[in-house]
Amino acid sequence: MIEGQERVQQFKQEIAEMRVRDPATGRDRMWLRVGVVLMIAGLIVAGLAYPMSHGTTNPLSQNDALALGLGGLTGAVVGSALFVRYSVAGFLRFWLARLSYEQQAQTDRLIESLKK
């Protein structure tokens, strides 16, 4: 069956060219998690810095606590940025796909009505 052969050939071709969900989306998810972890860890570190500073009169230890608190803050800010970046990216991609789909449907409808 030549016809069937062609069909199988086409199938193989399409499968070979198909875009399989690449590990990049997995990386997206990893960065998202890193963001969440950083946010929480930063908050905890910043929170712990206060009792550390409060519990001593030694200015050197207090400076350490200050630095630690600032470090925690930085971590939380960076974490939030990562989180926003990667959660919004996923959402925007979806939104864009939808937009282009609607555009397509709109165009189809227009062509349809022009044909009449």
Binding site: I15, A16, M18, V20
Partner: peptide, 13 residues
Amino acid sequence: AGRRVNGAKPEEL
């Protein structure tokens, strides 16, 4: 067809 397709979307297949 010899290609690893783990993770491919069912509707695409």
